[in-house]
Amino acid sequence: MIPYYYLASVALIVIGIYIVIAKKNLIKIIIGLDMMDTGVNLLLISIGYVKGGTAPIENGNYTLYVDPIPQALVLTAIVIGVSVMALALSIVIGLYKNTGSLELDEIRRERK
């Protein structure tokens, strides 16, 4: 059986991909990108989980810890995700100011 955490994070990634491919609204597409990022982050953290382990902060009482590396990677990935999102949103605002629309097909028509 596949653990449900993996299934949940893969489902988040896949919903994100679906949004990006199927939707035509730019803000929706960016929501989809953000969802993909969140899904991958959850995936990484679930990979690092150790049953019965505690957070990797050494206070002396525990001996079993979860894997610290995925947590470090996810810290990086979260910040990268928010950076990409901010930049993408500002590009969307720029497009809107130029065309007055958020729909991909209307923007394409505008250019011709």
Partner: peptide, 11 residues
């Protein structure tokens, strides 16, 4: 919250 459950308070 899931991160917290999975013992990743920093994240």
């Amino acid at each position: 919250i899931l991160f917290y459950i999975l013992q990743a308070p920093d994240v």
